[in-house]
Design a protein around this nucleic acid. Structure first.
Length: 492
RNA sequence: GGUCUCGUGGCCGAGUGGCUAGGCAUCGGUCUGCAAAACCGGGUACAGCGGUUCGAAUCCGCUCGAGACCUCCA
């Protein structure tokens, strides 16, 4: 397969653009990671899985990918305008009676644990804001030197007005300064900022603020947009291919990043901006600040008032991949259950591949289907289209097993490759460990024994006995499927 | 208030000018001692109104409805 042309929807231009890497066959990707002050929730899963798909697809196509996803472990103020507001990590530390760094450590590990459960590949580099204070300070210096920032009472602020004279502040989010001026409260007379839309590059720490580092301006901490600009530059260079994150970060976070990079380096850093949409619950965004979020641990255990049952990590993964990343995805038990069943059917078909008997000639073609799969992903990572194509393959497999279609050895190999590549490698769906039909342990041997006895009863037309075995095994959670010449079973 | 997005069959969710999306549910049939599984098939949707066009879910306008961002959030 020659590599297809990849088209990516670029938030900057609001158009799908052909992807042209800076270096052929290399991809530099930066994605905004979580602020680690709480349990990972369903919302965190979406960008992680979205960009996991991107990385997996590029790697499959032979790209060398450097994937940087940061951990934000420097607290941002709850209310920046209030100035003296408590930061989120410090607040959590106080509530849980922990050191801020204990909070950060705990939730970083938790996040990584849940991402592994979702089979999200670890990024190439997972840098922390607290470990890159020097890089951030250096970038602040550069911006100051270039005249796009000013000092005010020990803090450094980005001069948006000045920047906008030469560049365009608001180009990513489609805003202009006049609107911003009108729509921000003009009522903070003792603000250190020249204008309400200026943002902090370095913030002087109040006496009680715990996370603080020395600098020539003050003891303080970096402003909340600095880390991504500084760390992406450090690991991916002054320009790189793709920057991703949730749509809620477009403004102000990514807008500020563009301004910072441009002010420091004289040019923008990012070629393609990608943003995943939100997960909604009853049509409303699921978010920490709205208090309507569901933790991943709750999802996996079913322990939440909105959940009718537990959902496996792979069900969650499949659920997210069944929708295109740029659309909102509405949470409901019904939708999740549909995803669970669909995934089950997909995985069963994969297992059935080994049961297919080879023929001299094929009555089916694999190539068109395979092309469809590549085209789907090449068109802005359209995973729902890919999944639709994979269900065509499922139907193919089932028909082959049933003997309705025929396939040659070579074509069967193609079909197996298709499933392996797209289901396992690219979509990253793992066979669930739910059905332990390995036949090695005692209980599966006992089940086999009982079902063999049932077969015998059936041969003797002793329906009473055969149905009794079936109904009791079913009650124990063993699902029995009779086949032409025997039986299959699995644990429910 | 400003900027923007969206409204698809019972549910989820693709599609952007003419050609079956797909999944789940449901109904009918095949297979089966019965069932399950599997297979085959059915329903034929595009918020409303108007316009452009030979032709619109798809383009334009208006109306209604929902949501996002403008403060931290994935």
């Amino acid at each position: 397969m020659t590599a297809p042309k990849i088209f990516i929807y670029n938030t900057l231009t609001r158009e799908k653009e052909e992807f042209v890497p800076i270096q052929p066959n290399h991809l530099g990707l930066y994605v905004c990671g979580p602020t680690v002050y709480g349990e990972a929730h369903l919302g965190h899963a979406r960008p992680a899985i979205t960009f996991d798909l991107v990385v997996r697809f590029f790697r499959h196509l032979g790209y060398k990918v450097r994937y940087v996803r940061n951990i934000t472990d420097v607290g941002h103020l709850v209310d920046e305008n209030a100035g003296e507001g408590e930061d989120r990590i410090a607040k959590k530390a106080r509530i849980e009676e922990l050191e801020p760094m204990e909070v950060v450590h705990k939730y970083t590990e938790s996040y990584q644990h849940f991402m592994r459960a979702l089979n999200v590949m670890s990024p190439s580099i997972e840098p922390r804001a607290s470990g890159h204070i020097i890089e951030q300070q250096e970038m602040v210096r550069q911006i100051l030197k270039n005249g796009y920032a000013y000092e005010s009472n020990g803090s450094i602020y980005f001069d948006v007005l000045k920047y906008n004279q030469k560049y365009n502040y608001g180009k990513l989010s489609g805003r202009n300064l006049e609107d911003l001026l009108e729509n921000t409260r003009a009522l903070d007379g003792q603000s250190e900022k020249h204008n309400s839309f200026d943002f902090a590059l370095w913030k002087k720490a109040s006496p009680e603020h715990i996370m603080r580092w020395p600098s020539e301006w003050s003891e303080g901490f970096p402003g909340w947009h600095m880390e991504c600009s500084a760390m992406s530059m450090r690991y991916l260079g002054q320009t790189f291919d793709i920057h991703g994150g949730g749509m809620d970060l477009v403004f102000p976070h990514h807008e500020a990043e563009i301004a910072q990079s441009t002010a420091a380096n004289g040019h923008e850093a990012v070629h393609y901006w990608m943003h995943n949409n939100m997960i909604t619950i009853n049509g409303q965004k699921m978010g920490k600040s709205l208090g309507n979020y569901i933790n991943l641990s709750e999802l996996f255990s079913g322990n939440h008032k909105l959940l009718e049952q537990a959902y496996s990590p792979m069900t969650i993964r499949f659920f997210i991949l069944m929708a295109h990343y740029r659309g909102t995805l509405d949470f409901s038990n019904e939708a999740l259950q549909a995803a669970e069943k669909g995934l089950d059917r997909l995985m069963k078909a994969m297992q059935s591949l080994d049961k297919i008997k080879i023929s001299e000639a094929s009555t089916i073609e694999i190539k068109p289907l395979s092309d469809k799969c590549y085209q789907a992903l090449a068109d802005d990572f359209n995973s729902p289209i890919l999944i639709a194509a994979l269900f065509e393959a499922v139907s193919m497999v089932n028909n082959l097993v049933a003997g309705n279609e025929k396939i040659t050895s070579a074509n069967l190999q193609e079909l197996k490759t298709l499933f392996n590549d797209f289901v396992l490698e690219i979509l990253g769906l793992l066979p669930d460990g739910k059905s332990e039909t390995d036949g090695n342990n005692l209980s599966s041997q006992l089940i086999d024994l009982l079902l063999n006895m049932r077969m015998e009863a059936k041969r003797n037309k002793d329906w009473a006995t055969s149905d009794k075995i079936r109904s009791q095994l079913t009650a124990m959670g063993v699902e029995i499927k009779d086949t032409k010449d025997g039986f299959e079973w699995e644990m429910r």
